[in-house]
Every structure is written in structure tokens, then in C-alpha cells.
């Protein structure tokens, strides 16, 4: 019962705030709504017993990435709103239609797979010698997924170098 209430509250919050992100006129309002969305998603992770991910979600998304967005929104101090310039060839209605079609497609997939109800298959839990969400996640990351993990670190390094090269006026 408690899970039902929490799930529906969080869902309404997440979707409402996400709509606010997309529709807000002012980019700063969008960013604030985005932070709130991420915090609600983190709460959802706690419901799903993924405490470590919930904390990482707050730390990396809300505390890191979105601050970056806020910085750029403030640095890009616009005299005129980008929405004022209208490209006559732009097809916004077509875009909305495409999004609607995609929603229909995803809904179809969900309904189809739910009716098949093949999701009762339980994957064998990886035998990890440790207990606790954080420890098990760490165990997986450093054993089975070591190479992807190292690659992710290389990706982050490359992104860091790239961001500095792009943002610096003269090297």
C-alpha cells in the first residue's frame, strides 16, 4: 500500500516536472524543474532498493551535471529568446506527431510484453561474496564489468579534455 502511494506521488511529480522542463519559457526555470525531476527519480530508486544509485543520481546529476547546465544558461545571457527566431521550414507539428507515434509504439510494446508475461523468468543472481547494495554493485563493476568500467573512465577523460579544448579561448 505504501509503495503504491509513493509510486503514484513520485510519478505525478516526475511527469509534471518533466513537462515543466520542456515547456518553461525561461531556461532557468527549466533547469530548476530538471533538478526536481532528478531528485524525484532518486527517490524512486530508493523505493526500488537501489540506494547507491539514488545517491549517485543526486551527486552526479543534480549536484554536477545540472549545475553545469545552470552555468551555461547564465553565461549564455540572451538578449532575445531563441524561440523568437522562427525557421519557416520548421515542422513542429510534425515533431509532435512523431513523438505521439513513438509513445504509441512504446505503449504497444509494453502492452504486448505484459500480456505475454514472460517476465517471470528470473535471471540467476550473480554469486557475489559480499552483502549490501553498494558492495554488490562494486563487486560486479570490478569483476564482470571491469573492461566497460575502465572504458567509461577513458570516456570521461576524453570528454574532460574535449570540454577544456572547446571552452578555452586560446590554448
Amino acid at each position: 500500500m505504501a509503495e503504491t502511494i509513493v509510486f503514484y506521488t513520485l510519478s505525478v511529480l516526475i511527469l509534471g516536472l518533466a513537462i515543466l522542463v520542456v515547456t518553461a519559457k525561461n531556461a532557468v526555470h527549466s533547469v530548476v524543474a530538471l533538478v526536481m525531476t532528478f531528485l524525484c527519480v532518486a527517490a524512486l530508486y530508493v523505493v526500488l532498493e537501489a540506494e547507491f544509485l539514488a545517491v549517485i543520481q543526486i551527486l552526479v546529476y543534480a549536484g554536477g551535471i545540472v549545475v553545469l547546465y545552470l552555468f551555461v544558461v547564465m553565461l549564455v545571457n540572451l538578449g532575445r529568446s531563441p524561440e523568437e527566431h522562427q525557421d519557416p521550414r520548421r515542422l513542429s507539428v510534425f515533431g509532435l506527431g512523431l513523438a505521439g507515434a513513438m509513445l504509441l509504439e512504446v505503449a504497444g510494446i509494453v502492452v504486448y510484453s505484459y500480456n505475454r508475461s514472460a517476465s517471470t523468468v528470473t535471471a540467476p543472481a550473480a554469486a557475489s561474496p559480499v552483502q549490501g547494495n553498494t558492495q554488490e554493485l562494486g563487486w560486479l563493476l570490478y569483476t564482470d564489468y571491469l573492461i566497460p568500467f575502465e572504458l567509461a573512465s577513458v570516456l570521461l577523460l576524453v570528454a574532460m579534455v574535449g570540454a577544456i579544448v572547446l571552452a578555452k579561448r586560446d590554448l
Binding site: 518533466a18 520542456v22 531556461a27 527549466s30 520548421r90 509532435l96 505521439g100 509513445l103 512504446v106 509494453v110
Partner: peptide, 20 residues
């Protein structure tokens, strides 16, 4: 998740501010 994804898709297809 599907609803959230769709909101994201709408944002990408309809908005003109690249930060959004």
C-alpha cells in the same frame, strides 16, 4: 518510463533552444 521518454522526445523535436 515510456511517458517520461516521450516528454523528452517532444522536447527534442519541438523546442528550439539547444540547451533545453
Amino acid at each position: 518510463s515510456a511517458a517520461l521518454f516521450t516528454i523528452g522526445v517532444i522536447g527534442v523535436l519541438v523546442r528550439r533552444n539547444i540547451i533545453i
